[in-house]
Design a binder for these strands. Structure first.
Lengths: 303, 303
DNA sequence: GCACGGTCATCCAAAATCCGCATCGGTTGA
DNA sequence: TCAACCGATGCGGATTTTGGATGACCGTGC
C-alpha cells in the first residue's frame, strides 16, 4: 500500500492541545497544562494544521500568535469541547434515570384527577424527566406497551400478560351523577338500592369493559336491577346525558372534577367502598432508566 | 506505574464508530463503513462506553439495539460531528480569504461617496467578508494599523512608514460650496482667483492637515489670498457655516452628497484637476487572508 | 435434537502511533 | 559575541491499535 495517510479528520486530543496552546500562547506551558512535554504537543498541532490545511498559529522562536483562521477555529474548538462535555453529562444523566423521557399511556378517566396530581409531583421531584402523554383505551395501551411505543400505561384491570409488571396506584369509590331536581339529591349518600328500576346511563361493554363489568357485578351482588336507558363509554358523554335528565349515572369519584351545570354528585355505598382501581403497568424488561425514577413516584398512598 | 488510565474523555474516532454502529445496528457493516474490521470497532465502542460509564448499545448475538441513553448520545454525537465538519469548513474559508472579517478605518470625508460604493461592491462580490467600519482621523488610523486594531485604513497622504503598503484608490476635484445669493453662482465653473480676498472657510491645520496643506499650496501657486474667516476640520460643519453665509468653502467633490438647503456647489479648476487623493493603507505583513480578497476589490478606476 | 450460520467479544502477534529525551536552528537581549 | 529562550525535529522505546483467529451464544432449519 502506498502510505495513503488520508487522515481527513482531526481528533479531540488535537483540539485540546490547540486550545491550550492558543490560550497560553506558549508551547511549553500549554504542554505542561496538558500533562505532557512540548514535542508531542507541537506534533499534535502540526497534525491538526495539516488536516485542516490551514495554519492556525504563527510561531516564531520568540512569540506565538493566532492567525485569523486560528482565532475562528479557537472559538469553534471551544464550542466543540464544551459540547462534548455536555453530551457526556446529559448521557450520564439519562443513564442514571435522573433525566429522560417516558412515554405514558393513560385512559381518559385517569386524566381527570390522578394524572394531573402525578404531573405536578413529577414536575417538582423529578423535573428533568419529560413525560409524553398519550391518551388511549386500555387495550391500546397493552398493544403500545408490547411494541414499546409507551413505557408505562395507566389502565384498568385485568392485567394478565406475563411480561408485564404492575402496581396499583389508585383506588376510588363510585359516585352518582344526578340531574337537577332528582329526588335522590335530598340524601347525603346513596346505596345501590336507590337505583333499582330507575333510569340509569350505563357503560358500553365494548368501549368501557372495566366499568361495565364492575357495575354489573355490583348490582348483581346487591340484587338490584336498574333500568339501563343508554350505554356509553366516555364519562363526559354520560354526564352530558345526565344533565339532559335522561337518567342517573355511576362514575368514579375523579369524574367530580368535570363540572356540568345542573349535574350534582352524591356518594354511593359499595362493597368494597373503593371498587374502582387504577394500575400502572410496564414491561418488566423495559430498560429506560428514567422509568425506575418514575415508578418511585407512583405509590397508592398518594390517593 | 499503576495503570491509572484516567481517560475521562472520549475521542472523535469513537464517536464516528458509535454513530456508524448505531446507524447500521450491525458491528460488521459498521466496521466496513469505517474501513476497518469488526474487533477494533467493538473495542472503540467499549472504550467509549467505559469513558462515559454508560451502556449505549444493547448487543445480543442476534440484534443490536440502542439504549435510551444511546439514543440521546447518538443525537449529541451527530451534532458534534456536524460541528467538526462545519468548523473545518469555516476555518478553511477564513484561511483562503473567501470569508473573514476586516477592520476598516476611514475618514469622515471618504465615507460620503467612496465607502458606500465600496460596501455595495463588496456585498455583491465578496459577501462572506464582513467589514467592521471605524471612523477615525488619518493619524489615528496610522496608530490603529500599527497596533492591529484595523487591517486597512482609507486615509490621506502622506504615507511614510516603511512597514505599510498603500494604493491610491480615488482622486477627485475640489468644488466650491457657496451660499444662496452668492454672485459666483452665476458662473458654471470657478477658478481659484474667484476666491481672492473673499471670505473663505478654511481647514484647521491640526484637525485636517491634509486639506489645509492642499489648499494652502493651491492658493499659493495661484497667487491668490482668500480671506480666511473661520477654520474647521469637519466638512459638514463647514457647510453649515456656508449655509449661514459666513463665507464660501472648498470641499472635495464627494461632499456634494451632503445636501444642505441654500448651499450650492460649483466646480473649481485646479492644477492638477483632481488634487484630492485617497489611499488605502495596510501593513505589509498583515496576515489576514481576507485582506487580499478585499484589496482585489480596490482599484482606482472605480472612481 | 442437532448441525449450521450469523453475530459480537476476546486473544494475541504485528503494525502503527505516541511519547519524551536530546538536539537543532533561529531570535532576543545583555 | 554570547547566553537564554523557544519551537521544530530525529530517534529509540513504550504504549496503543489493528486485524486475523477463535470462542461463546443464539436463532434457524433439517
Amino acid at each position: 500500500m502506498a502510505g495513503a495517510s488520508f487522515w481527513s479528520q482531526f481528533e479531540l486530543r488535537q483540539l485540546r492541545c490547540f486550545v491550550a496552546a492558543a490560550e497560553e500562547l506558549h508551547f511549553g506551558r500549554a504542554a505542561a497544562r496538558m500533562n505532557m512535554t512540548q514535542p508531542p504537543l507541537s506534533r499534535q498541532i502540526q497534525l491538526l494544521e495539516h488536516v485542516l490545511g490551514v495554519k492556525l498559529l504563527d510561531r516564531t522562536s520568540r512569540a506565538v500568535k493566532l492567525t485569523p483562521a486560528g482565532r475562528v477555529f479557537l472559538l469553534e474548538a471551544r464550542r466543540i469541547l464544551r459540547l462534548t462535555e455536555s453530551a457526556a453529562m446529559a448521557t450520564r444523566r439519562i443513564a442514571s434515570g435522573e433525566a429522560g423521557t417516558i412515554n405514558v399511556g393513560f385512559t381518559a378517566a385517569s386524566g381527570y384527577s390522578f394524572l394531573p396530581r402525578l404531573l405536578l409531583q413529577m414536575g417538582s421531584r423529578a423535573p428533568n424527566i419529560a413525560l409524553v402523554l398519550k391518551e388511549m383505551v386500555s387495550t391500546d395501551q397493552v398493544e403500545s406497551l408490547l411494541t414499546g411505543r409507551i413505557d408505562v400505561g395507566f389502565l384498568r384491570p385485568p392485567i394478565d400478560r406475563g411480561e408485564f409488571s404492575h402496581r396499583r396506584v389508585a383506588r376510588e369509590g363510585l359516585v352518582a351523577a344526578l340531574p337537577a331536581g332528582d329526588e335522590r339529591l335530598a340524601k347525603a349518600s346513596l346505596s345501590l338500592a336507590d337505583f333499582d328500576a330507575k333510569p340509569l346511563i350505563t357503560y358500553a361493554p365494548e368501549g368501557a369493559r372495566y366499568f361495565h363489568d364492575l357495575l354489573s357485578a355490583q348490582f348483581e351482588s346487591a340484587g338490584v336491577t336498574p333500568n339501563a336507558v343508554q350505554s356509553l363509554s366516555q364519562i363526559h358523554s354520560m354526564l352530558a346525558l345526565v344533565r339532559a335528565a335522561i337518567g342517573a349515572a355511576l362514575v368514579p369519584e375523579a369524574a367530580m372534577s368535570l363540572h356540568f351545570d345542573d349535574v350534582q354528585f352524591r356518594a354511593v355505598e359499595t362493597q368494597p367502598a373503593q371498587p374502582v382501581e387504577l394500575y400502572a403497568v410496564w414491561r418488566s424488561d423495559n430498560d429506560n432508566p428514567a422509568l425506575a425514577a418514575f415508578l418511585d413516584q407512583i405509590h397508592e398512598d398518594e390517593d
